[in-house]
């Protein structure tokens, strides 16, 4: 540190400016007094940790420090204020140990998976993290890939899924994949095919419960009116959605419509009774896959009834 009387260095000036900017930002967000000072100190501590690499990630690249201080604060306003999300049945998500949350997928970009992640973190009594399984395209996309890994996602393969589940993590999977997010608005809340049931096999092999989860709201947040499939092929994307605002309004078109969201976690399906060998039995796998699919579909209809007005 410099002695009093010495002119401040550039670095000190930069830090002072940063602190003032943070104070102003915090005050604008409605913070005051000790709360504001805490927020400023917290942000500075976070920046120091990032600059000195003073944080650890797990073998999947999950970075709780980043998730807690950057990612979740960005998503929370979307979850509470914009979508006014209501969560029910969180008691069906186990307090500890591995479990597989299986949910429907919709709405052009996979905001529903992010909102489910926030829902678990915000409303679960143990504030668990939902580790998401994502398509390889996510990890191949510059910018998106590292953020996905930092926030706990990993590749949707049975090895990664089973590794997470057997180490007692809560894992989220969206078996409809691109078929779900890319489906047109007229098919809203109609579940697409659930693939080959790989997620059921993973749950059977690790003996963890399956928690079906229904999400209402994503379809109207990004209503997919059309698909520019020719352009998508040129760009190497699985689909290129056209919504009422995208791409007509440019980047503004990425702002979701403020639909009302409901997320319901359903009663868990126990898989221990079947034994790990049942993972190789297509009959059991298909039967369980269908059961999960039916549960989510019925819950979706019930939630739609309850919601009433879309933007209400």
């Amino acid at each position: 540190m410099t002695q009093p009387g010495q002119p401040p260095t550039d670095l000190e000036r930069a830090v002072t400016a940063l602190v003032q900017a943070l104070r102003a930002g915090g005050a604008a967000a409605g913070l005051a007094g000790a709360e504001l000072e805490d927020a400023v100190a917290g942000t500075l501590a976070f920046l120091r940790r990032r600059l000195t690499a003073d944080f650890t990630v797990d073998e999947f690249g999950f970075d709780p420090d980043f998730t807690e201080h950057v990612y979740l604060p960005l998503l929370r306003p979307l979850f509470h204020q914009w979508f006014r999300t209501e969560v029910t049945g969180i008691e069906h998500v186990p307090a500890e140990g591995g479990a597989l949350v299986v949910a429907n997928h919709a709405g052009a970009v996979a905001v529903d998976s992010l909102m489910t992640q926030v829902a678990v973190r915000e409303t679960h009594p143990q504030r668990r993290y939902l580790r998401m399984l994502a398509a390889d395209l996510v990890f191949a996309t510059p910018g998106v890939g590292p953020v996905a890994r930092r926030t706990g996602s990993t590749l949707a393969t049975h090895t990664d899924a089973e590794r997470l589940l057997s180490s007692g993590e809560l894992v989220g999977v969206w078996p409809e994949g691109f078929k779900g997010v890319g489906k047109p608005f007229r098919d809203r809340y109609r579940l697409q095919r659930f693939g080959r049931g790989g997620f059921v096999a993973a749950a059977l092999r690790t003996g963890v419960p399956i928690v079906p989860c229904a999400v209402v709201g994503a379809e109207e947040a990004y209503p997919v009116l059309g698909n520019a499939s020719a352009l998508a092929r040129v760009l190497g994307l699985p689909y290129l959605p056209l919504t009422p605002t995208f791409p007509w309004l440019g980047p503004l078109g990425l702002v979701p419509l403020p639909a009302k969201w409901l997320i319901q976690f359903c009663e868990p399906i126990d898989t221990t009774g079947y034994g790990p060998a049942a993972a190789e039995d297509p009959e059991v796998v298909f039967e369980l896959t269908d059961r999960v699919r039916e549960t989510i579909q019925h819950t979706l209809y019930a939630l739609l009834d309850r919601r009433g007005r879309v933007f209400g």
Binding site: E59, F60, F139, T154, L155, T159, R163
Partner: peptide, 12 residues
């Protein structure tokens, strides 16, 4: 590569 599982075991 981005298509790899997160953790490799010897049989992969």
């Amino acid at each position: 590569s981005p298509r790899d599982p997160a953790v490799f075991t010897e049989d992969m």
